[in-house]
Design a protein around this nucleic acid. Structure first.
Length: 599
DNA sequence: GCGATCAGCT
DNA sequence: CACAGCTGATCGC
């Protein structure tokens, strides 16, 4: 969870991902993605009042983020203040103090962050140097080198500060299987199950958040079906997602949730109730996406773990691993790095200390930063900031003692090595047989998968080496224009916003001073099903499609650990997934790049 | 009654 | 395995 307080040292007049306290006075706002912990204060009455008494303040975000934000009625009052920006299009903005008229020029570039639909990093370039705020991100090792806008004249830009998503910046989370490896494993699990019969259904027990859409679309694509979700409204302008999800519960793949299920958690029921004419006939496989990590010397890299007779955890991470973060930062070599998150079990000073190892040089007593080269004349005067006394910009003070830490060797693997197949797991999950399963041996997931006990995955213990080299892994399909870029998780390409019928290709967004926030059209093509919710008691919108008994959402039911615990069987031939990530990263070329919905 | 915060629980 | 969030209790205004 982000604990970034909202402001960067270099540009204290803007606020990012925070909208409370001091941030109420920002000259401009930036939202990296639509997760609640990055939206604090956004719908407070104070913020609403602040916006209404201002004519200049803007909120900058990606087009997809704008769309997701405005799908919540509670945030509609932001609409006229939003300036959606294209990815990778440097945009100059003026930060004007409304009382004094004082102005500061700043160039911002949105970079894909691979965290969830619409998620971006913000690169700021201005009179106080370059600063990168990563928001939350999941990038593979090597991705930074492919990002055009982190380079200039063939070299990495001189970045003064990086405000980094340090969720997993801890050697405990040394590596996390690649996104593609994880998705592939889930595809296999799902495919094996739903092929058995039409009564076999899969429940993806996802946490309520954006971020699983890529999984849904891959599943829908692979199995030519749609995934049942509770809420379609937010995707109403994102056809690439919309075409793979449904509000109809008659499908074999579900990612729905229902409050009632909490009181009645059963492994043979779906949150939405029935998915077949005869609910009793359902055979439900529960798959819970969850983060799995592996220590530096851990060989085990299985991406699925059995957690019950018909329940699995499957690796899925929205955040970069320790290795990936380290690769990212050591490539950029900023002067300083500030953590946006303190990993669980760590302290701020520990993380700060570890982050120093990837900085350009350790901050010394009276170290003063001098840009390597002045790329831009510092136009307007920015208030000189007291560099040493503004720790209060952050939630907690970052003063940490200097300590030498062994710098992990270079050449960290950017992908886990080939996924070794673990030996059949012991039958420690000696669950009692579930009577419901008795007559249907076929329903047990005859372990086509080995599972790993995730508790073993940590940094210490573990034996022999396992992870070295490996570098650059597979992803080599070239997509991008521009010099440095080869392939990136281009979420924005994938999750485009549906263009209006007549505005197909106007790719240019306001590239100068912020223009008045455009009006969003309530497109005539909006399906009937997406009627606006009638009350705003909730941020979430419920789609009542026909007689669906899904009346709400966002509750967790747990289908795990029920039923008989068969001893896991042998791994299937070819259960390795190592080759899967050679297929390329989370990229789909979907036309409509830059499709716009403004008029 | 509302908002902020925290504990508890996924 | 811990992603991000909801619910409910409590407190202050």
């Amino acid at each position: 969870m982000s604990s970034f307080a909202g402001r960067m040292r270099e540009y204290p007049h803007i606020s990012l991902d925070r909208f409370d306290h001091e941030n109420l006075h920002a000259r401009a706002y930036f939202l990296s993605h639509c997760h609640k912990d990055h939206m604090r204060g956004m719908k407070s009455p104070k913020m609403k009042r602040r916006l209404q008494s201002s004519r200049r303040v803007k909120l900058y975000c990606s087009l997809v983020t704008k769309e997701l934000l405005l799908s919540s009625r509670r945030h509609l009052f932001w609409e006229e203040f939003i300036v959606p920006l294209e990815l990778e299009s440097p945009t100059q903005i003026s930060l004007v103090d409304e009382t004094s008229g004082e102005s500061e020029e700043l160039t911002v570039t949105l970079l894909p962050a691979g965290h969830c639909p619409g998620s971006v990093m913000f690169l700021f370039e201005g009179g106080c140097g370059n600063a990168l705020y990563t928001g939350d991100f999941r990038l593979a090792s090597g991705d930074a080198a492919r990002m055009e806008h982190l380079h200039s004249g063939g070299r990495v830009k001189d970045i003064r500060s990086v405000y980094v998503d340090s969720t997993f910046f801890d050697p405990r989370f040394y590596q996390i299987p690649s996104r593609e490896a994880c998705v592939s494993a889930i595809l296999r699990l799902v495919g094996d199950w739903i092929a058995r019969s039409a009564r076999h259904v899969v429940w993806l027990n996802c946490k309520a958040a954006y971020g699983y859409e890529y999984l849904f679309t891959r599943l829908g694509e692979e199995f030519n079906t749609r995934v049942h979700v509770n809420n379609l409204l937010m995707f109403r302008r994102m056809p690439e997602i919309l075409s793979y999800v449904t509000g109809e519960h008659r499908t074999q793949i579900h990612a729905c949730r229902h409050p009632k299920n909490e009181a009645n958690p059963r492994g043979d029921r779906l949150p939405c109730g029935r998915a077949s004419p005869d609910a009793a006939d359902l055979r439900v496989l529960s798959i819970k996406p969850s983060t799995m990590w592996f220590g530096e010397r851990t060989r085990k890299t299985d991406v699925v773990a059995r957690s019950g007779s018909n329940a699995f955890r499957a690796c899925f991470s929205f955040h970069s691993s320790y290795c990936e973060i380290k690769d990212f930062l050591s490539y950029l070599r900023p002067v300083q790095v500030f953590p946006n998150v303190v990993p669980i079990g760590r302290t701020l000073s520990e993380v700060t200390r570890m982050l120093r190892t990837v900085c350009r040089k350790p901050p010394q007593e009276n170290f003063t930063y001098r840009p390597l080269g002045v790329l831009k004349r510092s136009a307007a005067t920015t208030t000189p900031h007291d560099w040493d006394s503004d720790n209060d910009l952050f939630d907690a003070s970052a003063a940490a003692p200097l300590r030498k830490k062994p710098t992990p060797s270079r050449g960290v693997p950017n992908e886990p090595g080939p996924y070794a197949v673990a030996p059949p797991a012991p039958t420690e999950d000696s669950l009692q047989p579930d009577p419901r399963d008795d007559n249907d041996k076929n329903d047990r997931t005859e372990l086509k998968y080995n599972y790993v006990d995730c508790t073993e995955s940590n940094d210490d213990s573990e034996d022999d080496e396992g992870s070295e080299e490996d570098e650059e892994s597979g992803t080599k399909t070239s997509t991008q224009t521009g010099s440095a870029s080869v392939e990136l998780p281009k979420w924005e390409d994938f999750f485009t916003v549906e263009p209006l019928p007549d505005s197909q290709n106007s790719q240019s967004q306001p590239c100068s001073a912020p223009s008045p926030a455009p009006t969003r059209l309530a497109g005539s093509q909006t399906p009937e099903a997406f009627s606006e919710p009638e009350d705003d008691a909730d941020d979430s919108f419920v789609l009542s499609l026909s007689a669906s008994d899904c009346s709400s959402q966002n509750r967790d039911a747990d289908g795990e650990d029920r039923g008989a615990g068969d001893a896991p069987s042998e791994p299937p031939p070819g259960s390795r997934v190592s080759s899967d990530y050679e297929k390329g990263a989370a990229v789909q070329e979907v036309g409509q790049r830059g499709g716009r919905f403004l008029s």
